[in-house]
Amino acid sequence: MDLGLKGKLAVITGGSVGIGLAVAEGLAAEGASVLITARGQERVHAEAARIGATWGVEAHGVAADVATAQGCAKIVTAAAQLGGAHILINNAGTGSNETIAEADDAKWQYYWDLHVMAAVRLARGLVPQMKIHNWGAIIHNASICAVQPLWYEPIYNTTKAALMMFSKTLANEVVGDNIRVNTINPGLVLTPDWIKTAKQLAGEDGYEAHLQGVADEAGGMKRFATPEELANFFVFLCSDRASYSTGSTYFVDGGWLRTV
């Protein structure tokens, strides 16, 4: 199936590892050019070079912190120099661990900048580029926690819920410009962060059993998705095969969500 993505420029934040890297690889496999961003300069450039060599596409890496205005501006400038973005994957983010009573203002502000303001700033900078192309696709990687919160990460829950609302609002604003905006709310995805945390909690010999316990508690399919499984859905939503989809939120969670 030709997804019509050949030659499109895709900007993927948090693109050097985990879900973001899998999405970048999936888009490159469809012939899209990719601009991946992450804070670590050595890794982001190495992964961009590997993607370009593997799939024979134009691939670039930009070291930037999307939690800052300067980092977002650097990404916007890089995309413009490459002819302008067609696709934006707002993926950069991380979980939190706190109580509302104990978390200070600085922690709330950091996650707000990372999960919400990054999306706002990149939309302001990249939507005009998409308008020039008269074609665009924006996908926000939020979380099942946006609607089904986990007790130990109130800041993550709150900022991901705000990202979901921003996505809907942006979709309404640009629907007349042939730019589609959607949200994906993943469930359990086996990223390096999950494995690292599991090893810290249960050790090298016990981490797999720990992860299975997490999956069993979630219910549904009782397993983690691979980053590639989630990336397949991202790639489809970017394509013209999803041409009537905008302003929507999709749960890719293996049946974890407990409501309809």
Rank of each mutant, 00 (worst) to 15 (best):
P149K: 10
D253R: 04
N232A: 15
R43Y: 01
V175K: 14
A101W: 09
I179Y: 03
Q200P: 06
T169E: 07
Y152K: 13
V57Q: 02
A22Q: 01
I155W: 03
Y111K: 08
N178H: 09
G136L: 05
L230M: 08
I184A: 06
L27H: 01
I179M: 04
R39A: 04
L211R: 00
V66L: 07
S239I: 00
F234Q: 09
V116P: 05
R241E: 12
L211N: 02
G71E: 04
R50M: 13
G187P: 04
S167F: 03
T94K: 14
H210F: 12
E173D: 06
Q70T: 13
R223Q: 02
N232G: 15
V11L: 09
F233K: 08
N141C: 11
A209K: 13
V11E: 06
N172M: 15
Q200V: 13
N178Q: 09
A63I: 00
Y244R: 11
A142G: 08
P149Y: 07
N172V: 13
T226R: 08
H140N: 15
V62I: 11
V189P: 02
C145H: 14
D2M: 11
I36R: 08
I179R: 02
A215V: 00
D193G: 13
Q148T: 07
T99L: 10
E217R: 10
Y110W: 13
D193Y: 09
Q200L: 15
S245P: 05
D216P: 01
L35E: 01
G84R: 09
C145Q: 13
A22M: 01
L257Q: 13
I51M: 10
M1H: 14
T246R: 01
I179A: 06
Q70G: 14
K222F: 09
M221T: 07
A161L: 08
L114N: 07
A38T: 12
C72Y: 02
G203S: 11
G125M: 03
T158E: 05
K222G: 11
G20M: 05
T13L: 07
E228N: 11
A118P: 06
L5R: 00
E25Y: 01
P192V: 09
V76W: 00
F236R: 09
V189C: 11
L27K: 02
R50A: 15
N91Q: 14
N232H: 15
Q129E: 12
V175H: 11
G20W: 05
S239R: 01
S239D: 02
I100D: 09
N134Y: 14
L9F: 03
R223C: 05
G206N: 10
S33C: 11
R241C: 13
K196I: 03
V147F: 08
T169C: 10
I19S: 01
H60W: 06
T259W: 10
H86E: 06
